[in-house]
Design a protein around this nucleic acid. Sequence first.
RNA 1: UCCCCGAUAGCUCAAUGGUAGAGCGAGCGGCUGUUAACCGCUAGGUUCCAGGUUCGAGCCCUGGUCGGGGAGCCA
Length: 539
Amino acid sequence: MTPCSGGRKIGPSGRAGRFAEAVRIGYAGGTGAVPGRVEGVVDGAVMLTHRKVADILKNGQPGQTVEVKGWVRTRRDKPTFSFVEINDGSCMANVQAIVESTTNGYELLKEVTTGSSVAIFGTLKESEGKGQRIEVLATSLKVLGTADAHTFPLQKKGHSMEFLRSIAHLRPRTNTFGAMTRVRNAVCWSIHNFFQTRGFLYINSPIITTSDCEGAGEMFQVTTLDLEGLESRDKGLGTEKAAGGDGGASTSPSVPSPSTLDPRPSSIDYSHDFFGKKASLTVSGQLEAEIFATSVGDCYTFGPTFRAENSNTTRHLAEFWMVEPEMPFYELEDNMRLAEEFIKTIIRDVLERCPDDMQFFNDRIEKTVLETCRNITDHEFIRLPYTEAIDILVKSGKKFEYPIEWGKDLQSEHERFLTEEHFKQPVILFDYPRQIKSFYMRCNEDGKTVRAMDVLVPRVGEIIGGSQREERYDVLVDRMKECGLNPEDYWWYLDLRKYGTVPHSGFGLGLERTILLITGMANIRDCIPFPRTPKNAEF
RNA sequence: UCCCCGAUAGCUCAAUGGUAGAGCGAGCGGCUGUUAACCGCUAGGUUCCAGGUUCGAGCCCUGGUCGGGGAGCCA
């Protein structure tokens, strides 16, 4: 996360100096910025010449002289003066400035349109109107940058999410995306804080991988080969598929991967490629996390993850952020306990740190988000074995589009029934049939199930997928063969079991799905600054 | 990738096969403190693209592009 402090050094120190100062303050300050708690002075830093809107609205007192800088949201003219509302992204609310005919720069008011940037110097006073505690009586107005009202796309009125996606470079200036950005930041802070306060080490797992068994989905290829010089092989969207990755379905013994089905002989010699072998963007940091969990202990990865599947849904991105903790000596029950505490802590932190933003989401986006959040923090998650879930679904008498049968993976409609209708709260499903789960999940003694777990939440579905890992060398080798995998390809993974193996567990949490859950946004593309989806990487 | 729906003014949407409309936004004017201000006036269009049917297509047909919802894959 970016240590974002209210205090920055200004003056001749220049950009590099300011950045260094910000970083230093971030480390010293520890908790980072909290909306509404912006400090004018931090750790001896030079006081800002201007104050953030969040600070003025929260701490500003009548009589104080202030300078406020930001972007104009709206201007309302009266015969002898104007109201100018300024937002700088530090909080949901705008600060209202009164620009009078006696204000220096009053003649510039024509240029003060929605979207323009201004610096206003003035005195704080109690507001005569309703709706705000305090406002700025301007003594001088400077227009930093105009925004042609004819062409500036953002208006005072609401816009559709689809339209805002088409102007992703300007949408952070809206209430919704300002709030989303602050909530996302709070979630990231909470994630690091949760693990750091529990002694987990943050592992920077690689983005580029040459492991063709990393799995969990179709991969984006990374190459420096001259593709235009190569004969087109009509790749289309993704042709690679391998086993593995948390929650991923296994490559069934009877179903070879698509790449082995390709009748065309490979004419590409990867020994000439940059890494000397075929390379891809990571689909999971789990393998790296397992290596470190079995050496330095509790750890987590947190970074971008890439899936080249041609998924066009409100819950999938081609590039998303995933948190993957991995813990030695944890069995499945410990894993579930940690996952539950993790989600609850994130939600509690966001509610505490972003109350205005959350109120906004509840008022304007989805009127049940606060209730949903409280419902999650206040109740114990249901723990339900897969087999019992099947029973509940069968006995529900509800007609589902897809049949319910032990051994088949649950469909979205089944998961939604359990979490939205039957229990009306998060459900942790565990002990899934071994034939629908990945090779690395620990086999149960019943010979039929593995120690997998999925955390299902209302509206979003699967938010966490995880498992206790198979730590028994021989069992893992047999399981790989059962899944049609060649153990030799996994020699280093097997080494972890060969030398000082320990029971261990882990899971993966989708950051954007967490944002979906907490904010009530309808589409995951609006839960990340710049969404990457099939046919979309414009910004 | 599959199924369904859609694309008209800057935005959100109307428009029986027969003159292309509204609200908001924008511009101008008015208003003694506004709060998505309010009141009046004005401007604003290659109806997604390419074909086809028809005397005539925003509307019907074919193909494409893009977008939305659902499904699959999964986080």
